[in-house]
Write a protein that binds this DNA or RNA. Structure first.
Lengths: 410, 410
DNA sequence: AAAAGTATCGGTAACGTTTGCGGAGACGTT
DNA sequence: AACGTCTCCGCAAACGTTACCGATACTTTT
């Protein structure tokens, strides 16, 4: 405790009091003489009391700046309530949570005082001590289509019902943003994560971290096979098959496929469905009629240009999303290709605009709300479970919405 | 400290050891005889050591259940790094934050160890001690239209750039949900809130709380005048005026207005614009041609029915959002009313479907991304500011997108 | 050689909450 | 009298991090 200072100042005799006539008290022994300067620490003068061999720094009047900065608005805490009522923190905590071991009178008094002081619990402290945030995170690649917003609505319903919060982040179709999002989710200690991958994502290290930490992770829609987690998808193969079959049954022969990147299972499945349908009906599957890639609006235009300018032009195009399909329709109109007679078009997702455009876009409607429900219910189930690494896949069914773009007037 | 127990057990002599021949050690003095039963506490036997006058409960083998439950996956902390390196927590903290007062070697060692142990900082603890979460909250009423998703994208850009996270909640046009959302935001101690009100909201107590606590609150789009906070809006009056003026200049005479609830300033402003334009060009302003209310899809249909069935039917309708305008267009088509010849329609917001429907919907395009940018930049500015109660309003400008629904072929 | 300065690190009090355990009185039961 | 049970409440240790104070050991300046 009173460790003897064997440093170089041990034998000092000159004191500041006598030398410069300044009055500085040692903060320990309150002596005035025997105080010596002993360097600077962070811009402040450091002193050494010769008597008690104690180093200290002299802080100037801090009222001016420090107190002004520190004058943060005080949020009333449990301690405030406890103090003003003359009880302990634990009593207040128990009262607020309707715990046992508390008398009705005390409890009512606490509740009244809490309301009076406008107490708002601090979720941070709660989460820290319970290591549970009651928050589920959700990362979606985009907000442009109605698909993800609707999934969010569905998940939100279930989660709020269960007393959970939903924190949404969007990766904006960027792998890097997705990584930083997952890091932020980890840092914020969410209890579970619902994620739909970007079109760029082809490395999954940032996701396997969650399994290591025991945090439930559920993929939906844009899933990948490389990691063993629960997945919620729609029957992409079947939907795709039916869409192409529908085109074939409407007399289309040379059907092209505009697909997504093959890193995504969803793209693979839809491609499989396309091939299966073509095969079943003996239609030729030609590689140059199949395009897979990231379908930004620009890319969709480029691919569309290519397909529509082919020597042997396809008489139908099955696109993997509605925005690409619509882009195709607009290009066809520009080129004077009539829809559906000269070109049939089918999309995927049933965006709002698909019902309103030109002759109406035939498309596959996905059960967006139900996807949200399913993922949310599943993650809540896993939050309380012991084992979380499951590789189950839940498949929801879709509906083919037939509109004018594929109904040939033949 | 060694307070004498003056309770009723003070004079006990019978000891359990002799009586029942069970061996229970006092946890304090490790005596075996002199231990007496002293009631139950939460289902566990409580004992009293006669020698040291110490109460204690005997816990059974907890390995089976307790340890199993407690076997939570351990997240590596700063302390783990400190221990394994033989340094203090503060050193690790300084190293991780690139603070001064640390040698390059120590710092590198810490960083290496952190990477090796897969350390992820605990944002909860950080926020608790700093009382700053680096998170901005955003509450939007809906995700159905493209408007809010685009605002989110804009705000997201600015916030991530500044190292902030964005937590999004949606009130689903419900006042009650909005209240619970704001409570959750408060509990999570967000640093600032961006909010667009629901159509139901006409009480603002849940918002004035933020001012009391010194948390910056910014309203955008759906703002109200009743509280003094920063607001980001578009030039609704001017936009509305121009839209109606455009209808008038295209030869429409009896122009109806389908507006939102008047609790929202945005509705008031658009109504003002409508009136001003009608007045300027000497068109009659008739009360039965002006409808204000919550515009759900169902309501839009009811109001549309009413307007289109009027004895003296309006020859144009200026709707306050695109979805209502589109509903009107569809109803007109069902009734065989030709657009734009018999009925002109103008909407507001430029949803995606508006470009694709029928003859194309004339509408007012809002600078959604810019709204997001502006609100985000503003809230970041206020987070660091002293005074946050400002009543400034920033007005962004809109653009009238003229399409077929209002271009009379006359 | 005193004084001042620099560099690096540790100790520890917060931050706000929950919770296990102990203390003490009241009352009931052999 | 001896013991069991119940109720109500306080104490204090977590939870993980930051930052303010020191403390030590140097080097440089005066």
């Amino acid at each position: 405790m009173t460790k003897v200072n064997v440093g170089r100042f041990a034998g000092l005799t000159t004191c500041l009091f006598k030398k410069y006539n300044i009055m500085i008290h040692c903060v320990k022994c309150t002596q005035v003489d025997g105080i010596m300067k002993a360097g600077y620490v962070r811009g402040k003068q450091r002193y050494l009391c010769k008597w008690c061999n104690y180093y200290f720094t002299h802080t100037e009047k801090d009222d001016s700046i420090e107190s002004l900065v520190k004058r943060k608005r005080h949020q009333t805490t449990i301690i405030d309530i406890a103090k003003s009522l003359g009880v302990s923190n634990s009593t207040v905590s128990r009262a607020l949570h309707g715990h046992a071991d508390i008398s009705p009178e005390t409890r009512q008094a606490v509740l009244d005082k809490a309301a009076q002081l406008d107490y708002q619990p601090n979720q941070l402290a709660y989460s820290l001590v319970k290591s549970k945030t009651n928050t589920i995170g959700m990362i979606v690649p985009e907000f442009q289509n109605q698909f993800f917003p609707n999934v969010i609505i569905g998940a939100h319903e279930v989660l709020t019902q269960a007393g959970y919060n939903l924190t949404i982040m969007q990766s904006n179709e960027s792998y890097q943003v997705e990584i930083s999002n997952t890091k932020a989710m980890l840092a914020n200690r969410i209890d579970g994560l619902l994620i739909s991958l970007t079109q760029e994502t082809n490395n999954f290290d940032h996701l396997s971290v969650f399994a290591k930490r025991g945090i439930p992770l559920i993929q939906f829609n844009r899933v990948c096979d490389q990691i063993d987690v629960p997945k919620v998808v729609v029957n992409d193969f079947e939907a795709s098959f039916k869409a192409v079959e529908h085109l074939i049954l409407n007399g289309y022969e040379r059907i092209a496929h505009l697909g997504g990147p093959l890193t995504l299972q969803v793209s693979q499945e839809r491609l499989r469905g396309y091939r299966a349908a073509m095969e079943k009906y003996g239609k030729p599957i030609q590689d140059h009629m199949i395009i897979q890639g990231m379908l930004t609006q620009q890319k969709a235009r480029i691919y569309g240009q290519y397909l529509l300018d082919l020597a042997e032009r396809p008489d139908a195009i099955f696109a993997v999303n509605d925005s690409s399909a619509i882009e195709i329709m607009l290009m066809a109109q520009e080129k004077g290709i009539s829809i559906p007679n000269e070109l049939g078009v089918v999309g995927f997702s049933d965006n709002a605009e698909s019902a309103y455009i030109g002759p109406g876009l035939t498309t596959v409607r996905q059960p967006t709300l139900q996807i949200g429900h399913t993922t949310a219910e599943w993650v809540l189930q896993l939050v309380d479970a012991d084992e979380i690494i499951v590789n189950e896949k839940r498949v929801l069914s879709t509906e083919l919405i037939v509109r004018g773009s594929s109904r040939r007037c033949s």
